[in-house]
Design a protein around this nucleic acid. Structure first.
Lengths: 197, 197
DNA sequence: AATGAATGACCGACGGTCGGTCATTTGTTT
DNA sequence: AAACAAATGACCGACCGTCGGTCATTCATT
């Protein structure tokens, strides 16, 4: 035959080599010519592995988010209170064991592109991620109810908590601040109500 | 000595004439050449009144949002329960007296552009809008506490409610659904807790 | 009333940028 | 040397924003 490269792996490598570049420039200022240079390939080669620029960025994001979700699974076995688990689940901001600031920026880029794109792969992936988080949250809450830490009605707040976190994230992006404390205060206030006194 | 037009007014007119176009195409598919054609002016003229494409869209959005906030002020005098007021405050989705679906789409475009733009006028405007809503919400909650409808601690939920709404909005955008009911359920659940039995 | 100078409104051809394509070259296997 | 995968950068066209020039109106002067 001829040279056979591992398409999947090369695709991943090209994408990953541009992670910093994306963080630095942001989607709209990211140039395909720079992607190619950074990955050490020609511009045309980029298009042998990706449909378009958006596809490259999507790949970078998928990798980071999947990595984050694996982390979550691993660190979740540690026993904690229900409230601690909830805080940890959403602790994109500053985790004791890892810095997720990159993920936060990349996720912002992802959201901004997703909002400008008609329903497609990005929307579907976002949905998947949200479902993963939601299912995890439901587990946490159900555990908390079972252990008596929180009350039965707490399940009614699953979607509220999910969306509050999303909202705090959005606020952080638009106001260039870190909403970690605000989110914590919100959770404190909520748990004060749903907790079994 | 020459024709003097009302710059401010013409600027507004050009922008407003393109509202439907923006709703139809979305920011990224909006072409300056089409803006010009729709407004019935030459492309160069657009740039006599606006810094760039983003500026045009910003003007459209400012007008719609200001209009919405005026509406809010007017319709707020009707006496209602605290909970009804809260629902009304966030009822971008489907208001009994007006259809805000356009505003929702336009606000989505606004957010997506804001996320791709470094801090500037758009961020500042967004901040202003949020503050307006927040102050209104604080008034509502304080009224509710005063009237005995809800408990003292309810004030702790101001930011949570704000962000939950933002989050529901974001969810609606990314999943192409209307989150009105979900938001209502969230408010129901919350008021069941913060209400005086 | 007629003239023309001054000025601002208006315009579209053009330059530059950048995403995406494709004809060609390079290198490997058989 | 044939056959084919991989790599590439010159090229294309879409689109943004600029700029030099035109046109319409107003006003000063006659």
């Amino acid at each position: 035959m001829a040279i056979i490269v591992n398409k999947e792996e090369k695709r991943r490598n090209i994408a990953l080599s541009c992670t910093e570049l994306l963080l630095d420039k942001g989607y709209s200022q990211l140039r395909v010519s720079e992607i190619a240079k950074t990955a050490g390939v020609g511009k045309g080669t980029v298009y042998d592995y990706f449909k378009n620029k958006e596809d490259v960025v999507f790949e970078i994001i998928r990798n980071l988010i999947n990595e984050h979700q694996e982390d979550l699974k691993v660190h979740f076995k540690k026993n904690r209170t229900c409230k601690q688990k909830v805080l940890h689940l959403f602790d994109f901001y500053l985790c004791e064991h890892k810095d997720y600031s990159k993920h936060l920026i990349v996720y912002k880029e992802f959201m901004s592109v997703t909002l400008t794109t008609p329903a497609g792969d990005m929307h579907a992936f976002n949905h998947e991620c949200t479902n993963f988080i939601r299912e995890t949250l439901v587990d946490i809450i159900e555990d908390g109810i079972r252990s008596g830490e929180i009350r039965e009605e707490s399940l009614n707040f699953v979607d509220g908590i999910m969306c509050a976190e999303r909202g705090f994230m959005l606020k952080g992006w638009t106001e260039n601040i870190n909403c970690r404390n605000e989110f914590k205060q919100y959770i404190d206030a909520l748990f004060a109500l749903i907790g079994n006194k």
